[in-house]
Design a protein around this nucleic acid. Structure first.
Lengths: 196, 196
DNA sequence: CCTAGATGTAAACAGTTGCTGACTTAACCC
DNA sequence: GGGTTAAGTCAGCAACTGTTTACATCTAGG
């Protein structure tokens, strides 16, 4: 069985660029920015180290590209106008959905600081906008800081779960599936954000 | 005004050891293990770099010492037999209590992986034991995995808040005080862990 | 076919990392 | 007070970091 792709070209800029992005995202999410080596990333991608600087100028540039890529992907899966009832499903899917494994949780990436100011500003921007969406879904009116705070706490919870699942090996949390996470998440979200 | 300490000795092993521990905890919590340099720690402690290896054998040894120190301190502030109603208070205090600032949140340290197996095992051990205590406080009976999962999620939430407060600058979460955190935390905990 | 530009490779650079050894200096005891 | 030991200093090493530079090789267009 040969490959189906029409052009199995041995030199493909866009292709290797994507290989690097995928490998980088995995390593950054798993080990953090500082602990990850450009050579590790290149090896995992099966690509020469120098290409990182060719395609992304620097390690920070690569990280930034991972981040903006993650934004797009998240923006596609999580619509901006979710209802509060859908939120637990969205979180559970993002934490343990069928896609995870090859694409390790994007959420973890949002907790990985690079120290670079530009990249960190992107990170903060995404987080803020997520919290806003969540607060809006919960019925926030402009100026309502208390509900915004609650939305940020809910977001913290989702990110905390993602991080603990990936760095600590804490059962049953680490290997809980989408279904097992759903019910607790529903209780958490409704306890925190439901109108009373 | 001279110093009040009875013995202002210029050479004090225990003293400088503690200086190193404090500085290391701050840096590790703020920047993570890999991004923190032994020279940074030594400078912040106002101490020669070589003393880190003298007193703690290695950077990893220092991190491990920070971790076990944090265990003791947490074990003292958070008793093992808390009631469920006290949990939100304990979390809020640990997140934003009056002591924070000089002693940046111990919780963040528990999310900082060093890559060293020994240190990470300590970390996991603490987290597991905390989750157990929480589940017990919620009325867990042996073998009840569902409630344990919920306790681990609650713990994730607390840690996530700690991390987001320290790495993202997300208002109003970042500068919320103990009181402002308490009410949402109560709703979160009761929604997640209360018997229904 | 054959050349020009795109793609990939190899080696080395300068700076930083954690760590070590030989050394100096202060504190304590008789 | 001299001498012994603990406490602190200093310079440097070997390994690793991100990055660059000069070079090889493939691919497409004329």
């Amino acid at each position: 069985m040969t490959t189906r792709t029409p052009a199995p070209r041995r030199r493909d800029a866009a292709g290797t660029r994507q290989l690097l992005l995928d490998a980088a995202r995995r390593r950054f999410a798993a080990d953090g920015y500082a602990a990850t080596t450009v050579r590790e990333i290149a090896d995992e991608a099966g690509v020469n180290v120098a290409l990182i600087n060719r395609y992304f100028t620097s390690k920070e540039g690569l990280f930034e590209a991972c981040l903006t890529g993650a934004v797009d992907e998240l923006g596609r899966t999580v619509a901006a106008d979710v209802t509060l009832a859908e939120v637990p499903h969205a979180i559970a899917r993002q934490l343990a959905g069928p896609h995870v494994g090859q694409h390790p949780s994007l959420l973890v990436l949002l907790l990985r600081s690079s120290g670079d100011e530009r990249a960190d500003e992107i990170r903060r921007g995404i987080l803020r906008s997520f919290a806003e969406s969540l607060a809006t879904a919960a019925g926030r009116r402009p100026g309502d800081d208390k509900l915004l705070l609650r939305a940020q706490i809910a977001l913290s919870a989702a990110l905390g779960i993602a991080l603990l699942r990936s760095t600590a090996t804490m059962e049953p949390l680490a290997s809980a599936g989408e279904q097992e996470l759903l019910e607790p998440l529903q209780d958490l979200i409704s306890g925190l954000l439901a109108r009373r």
